[in-house]
């Protein structure tokens, strides 16, 4: 929300909206950044098992100074609590769970998402090095890939694009995108605007998007 334009959804609200997609019984992996915030907004009445690439199966909300376990952190190296049903495995087993397709939804951040489902989140323009972490494993192997990101870059450039210009994390894998301006579905027709941020109109969102948006005749505001 660093560009000079009217406000969209804040980070907590984007995370909350994304978390509403998690269905009862799902195992979900939350990437670093805004995706981590989903762990504090899990939908009530549904059992969601949070998996972390460093070996936690069944972690809970972020720890406070009072219930801190010095030995236990999430993928973003933030201290988290464990649910009573939690188990801990080693790094290779944590990724065996990912690679074998047992993660129902992976939530990651991105620099760019394309209308063909490609996305890029590990290497910036002009850099030799990159930061992959577990993103390529999750992207290639999770049943669903949700992206949470700001709708535009700090410079106001669209992140939802026709084709990615940055090196890909994985081709053709993104299913949904949650930004400060709305909820988007990525599929065979391209990118569909499913819900829009309050106070925004579809043509305003389109103007900040690098790909053609499909807009249904009855467009809802973002539902929480």
């Amino acid at each position: 929300m660093t560009t000079k334009r009217k406000p969209g959804l804040d980070r907590e609200t984007i995370a909350m909206r994304c978390a509403r997609e998690f269905q009862d019984g799902w195992m979900v992996n939350l990437g670093i950044g805004i995706p981590t915030l989903c762990s504090n907004h899990l939908p009530e009445g549904r059992e969601i098992i949070l998996h972390s690439e460093n070996g936690l199966i069944g972690y809970g909300p972020l720890a406070t100074r009072e219930d801190l376990d010095i030995h236990t952190v999430n993928a973003g190296v933030q201290h988290v609590t464990l649910m009573p049903y939690a188990a801990i495995v080693h790094h290779a087993d944590a990724f065996a769970i990912i690679r074998s397709g047992k993660i129902d939804a992976s939530v990651l951040g991105a620099y760019q998402v394309a209308e063909n489902g490609d996305f890029a989140n590990w290497k910036r323009a002009g850099m030799r090095g990159g930061g992959i972490g577990g993103a390529m494993d999750l992207a290639a192997c999770a049943k669903r890939l949700f992206i949470i990101m700001e709708h535009t870059t700090r410079e106001g450039e669209p992140r939802l694009v026709r084709r990615c210009t940055l090196p890909l994390t994985a081709p053709g894998v993104v299913t949904m995108v949650f930004t400060d301006l709305g909820v988007f579905e990525v599929g065979p027709p391209g990118i569909t605007l499913k819900e829009i941020a309050p106070g925004w109109k579809p043509d305003e969102v389109q103007a900040l998007t690098g790909a053609r948006l499909h807009v249904p005749p009855h467009l809802d505001e973002v539902r929480l």
Binding site: E53, H91, A92, A94, F95, A96, I98, R99, I132, G133, G134, A135, M136, D137, A140, C141, P167, L168, T169, A170, P171, G172
Partner: peptide, 28 residues
């Protein structure tokens, strides 16, 4: 990629010289 790193280490300790993974297909 981190899971490939972990599995390469696991394989190294398990007497497995190499393995196939779907991770990073279609990337540089």
């Amino acid at each position: 990629p981190q899971g490939t790193l972990a599995e390469r280490i696991r394989a190294g300790g398990a007497g497995i010289p190499a393995f196939y993974t779907p991770v990073a297909v279609g990337t540089e």
